[in-house]
Write a protein that binds this DNA or RNA. Structure first.
Lengths: 161, 161
DNA sequence: CGTAATACCAAACAACCGTTTGTTTTTTGA
DNA sequence: TCAAAAAACAAACGGTTGTTTGGTATTACG
């Protein structure tokens, strides 16, 4: 709280005029982060027409936000609802609401029902994990997103070259 | 440190006879966790002969350790090297050493070079993410591991039912 | 203009944190 | 058996933490 106060040019106590507690501030930042990512994803998805193009656009936007807007994204990805018992329900709701976008995008692909859930969890898990191994020098976020999506599109055992 | 002392029946200061600092203790737990997971993975991999069976066995063992032996696994998965600057090199080395197993297992599949890296990162990212959404009621760890691996084996756009 | 809401300051509170120091108990081995 | 090494205790250290309280500028508005 003292670090945040210094960064905003306030004294620590002044924060409590705006937020009831540290946890409440955390939730506000989390919500803002989710909203920023969701906003961008929604925008780029709307610009595409085929189910696959829409999913790809979502993955690229998701990862670009995760790796660029890193302060908010760090909170959204690394803070798990169970880390903040006092707000876990609220955080879970925000996360579920966001991930529903990918549920719908994947459902549009026409996969068998049983595979949809794992496709979503695999995709989001792999994308989010990129935040921990990404280094600015290597592949650009958009390329990484497409690389991960390609792993789900082209079978592992095919195409021995 | 006080919680750990209580759990081990010691006073807080006594821990410092065994470990130089809190970070040193963290590294020791991390190393022990990696060793436990790696040991089990190595054992089950050795029992399989084909490249694909070996990779599948590794995924199942990895996830079973992650979801069952949850105290050590929690440390190994959630603590990132950059979280502990004083020990980040040591943690990175441990993690790289473990993940090299998957690098080799995937290389044995005969994928084109360019795809191997993303296949590994996608697979490990998706498996590790399961730790945050897994709930004891649902699919068993082994089934989840196979479900995730199936996402990389069967193309996304195929098999409309 | 003046008053009331808004925003922030100044200072402290109590609890908690990782760690150190000197001492005592327990275990080991010659 | 008895000295030495190992292990744990007892108590505190200085610093950090989230938060509260009462006062003070600043702004908005009837």
């Amino acid at each position: 709280m003292r670090d945040i106060a210094r960064a905003t040019g306030m004294l620590p106590g002044s924060i409590y005029y705006h937020f009831a507690s540290k946890d409440a501030l955390l939730v506000a930042v989390y919500a803002e982060g989710v909203q920023r990512i969701a906003g961008r994803v929604d925008r780029v998805v709307a610009a595409q027409t085929t189910p696959l193009k829409r999913l790809e656009a979502a993955c690229v936007a998701h990862l670009e936000m995760l790796l660029a807007d890193s302060d908010y994204a760090q909170v959204v990805v690394r803070v798990l609802p169970q880390d903040v018992p006092a707000a876990s329900a609220r955080l879970t709701a925000l996360r579920d609401d966001y991930e529903a976008r990918f549920r719908r995008l994947i459902a549009a692909l026409g996969l068998p029902r049983a595979r949809r859930r794992y496709a979503r969890l695999t995709l989001l898990g792999a994308l989010n994990a990129a935040q921990s191994w990404y280094r600015p020098g290597g592949d650009a976020p958009a390329r990484i997103a497409r690389g991960i999506l390609a792993c789900l599109r082209e079978p592992l055992e095919a195409a021995k070259r």
